[in-house]
Design a binder for these strands. Structure first.
Length: 382
RNA sequence: GGUGGGGUUCCCGAGUGGCCAAAGGGAACAGACUGUAAAUCUGUCGUCGCAAGACUACGGUGGUUCAAAUCCACCCCCCACCA
């Protein structure tokens, strides 16, 4: 099998769920995959050796944040992000497209790009599609994302169309700034179009005309009802090319991810395991728990009896509660270690299940753990 | 012994006649978090009640007043400085 960066081997299919292998300049990643988020070049509270120990294969970095601080040129002089942060496995960088959404009020969009005011010091910066490629090449990320305009749920069809069309034009400029095969970095396009099927299809086809090493689905999990995401994934499944990886950006909860896998998505990233860990919400084989709750004050049992991570092997719920309530730094590390292990293991188990042709059964076990998060719950008349 | 300052709801602390069950912070107890402006944010926080409302509360006792955490008298504590 070829291991040229960008090569995607589809190893098994179970329903629409896929198990594959994606080659990058820093080694292969097994899909489906969950990618921990390390916005500022660090998965918060977790060192690279821990990430490796819990089975992380690829992490995220963020163009906007690393450009502002310490500066992508500085990172380039250090030999790229992998040398700088000592994570030698694959890295995917987001383009700043999400900040177009999350920093609304601090940015202005034009045809040529986005003008940001830094959230750090208020200074003005301009991101064009070409600039974003240049930054990501300085970072030397294995998977670069096009600049896109991510919008929240509730936009009109007209607004959503404009954003999707602009994103498609930016996609072409990103591709032209970095033609396929220029170097070992891969470039992914991002499907936009909000909750509108016609726009989603238009967006996907525009990207396919341009041609990318992978296709991301953006603009989901931004406040829309759960069934909309599912509908969108089902719609896109037969449209997107079968031989390229698909990445559902920013998703999500355990069940969101398992539904995504079921609909043919290969890659996921989300801040949920790390942010929730820092805020005390922990994922267990019996569902979510908030470790700060009084009921755990004298609970000598492990966080999750079915988890083999360092946190669960070593500490009691009572101690973890104490660390959280006391604001101890160790709380962030132990909780993050556990939540990441949970997400990583869940997706690893999904891959195994697909390879063995029993994905539906595997997913059903998780659905039983999170009855309140059924994506069909808010679906209108089926 | 003298002079000055002070005792407020679990804690700190604002409040000098009604708009006070009483600012603000903390603690406590819950909840949220989806391509990280997040070690963040939100709610509750005297008792009873679904509520309207009732009751109990600002060191103690008594008083002034239609009305007192706020004014007066005495008493009990605490702090600073002086002797």
């Amino acid at each position: 099998m070829s291991d040229i960066p960008g090569t995607f081997h589809l190893l098994a299919v179970d329903g629409n769920a896929r198990a594959g292998l994606l080659h990058t300049a820093h080694g292969p990643i097994e899909t489906p995959i969950f990618m921990p988020v390390g916005t500022a070049g660090s998965v918060k509270a977790i060192a690279p050796d821990d990430l490796e120990a819990i089975g992380a294969q690829i992490i995220l970095g963020n163009t906007y944040h690393l450009y502002l601080r310490p500066g992508d040129d500085l990172v380039a002089r250090r030999g790229g992000l992998h040398e700088f942060n000592a994570w030698r496995r694959p890295i995917l960088t987001d383009s700043g497209g999400f900040q177009v959404f999350s920093l609304e009020g601090l940015r202005r969009i034009t045809e040529d790009g986005v003008e940001f005011r830094s959230h750090l010091d208020g200074s003005k910066h301009f991101f064009s599609p070409e600039k974003v490629i240049s930054i990501q090449r300085n970072l030397n990320s294995d998977i670069m994302m096009q600049l896109d305009q991510c919008i929240g749920f509730g936009a009109s069809h007209d607004e959503a169309r404009k954003a999707a069309e602009l994103s498609a034009r930016w996609a072409r400029r990103c591709r032209e700034a970095y033609p396929a095969g220029t170097a070992g970095n891969l470039l992914f396009g991002i499907v936009q179009g909000e909750a509108f099927p016609d726009l989603r299809e238009m967006s996907a086809r525009a990207l396919m005309d341009i041609g990318f090493e992978g296709y991301a689905i953006g603009g989901l999990a931004v406040g829309e009802p759960k069934h909309i995401m599912l509908r969108c994934l089902r719609q896109l499944h037969p449209i997107l090319p079968g031989n390229k990886p698909r990445y559902l950006m920013g998703v999500g909860t355990p069940l969101d991810i398992l539904h995504g896998i079921e609909e043919g998505v290969d890659m996921f990233d989300c801040v949920l395991p790390t942010r929730n860990a820092r805020n005390g919400t922990l994922y267990t084989s019996r569902g979510k728990i908030n470790i700060k709750r009084k009921e755990f004050a004298e609970d000598d049992g492990p966080l999750d009896p079915e988890c083999a991570c360092y946190t669960c092997r070593t500490f009691s719920r009572a101690y973890l509660r104490h660390l959280y309530v006391s604001g101890e730094i160790l709380s962030f590390r132990l909780n993050s270690l556990h939540n990441l292990t949970y997400f990583l293991n869940m997706v690893k188990g999904a891959r195994k299940a697909i390879l063995e042709g029993r994905y539906a059964e595997y997913k059903a076990r998780y659905e039983a753990m999170y009855p309140e998060e059924d994506p069909l719950f808010d679906e209108p008349e089926a």
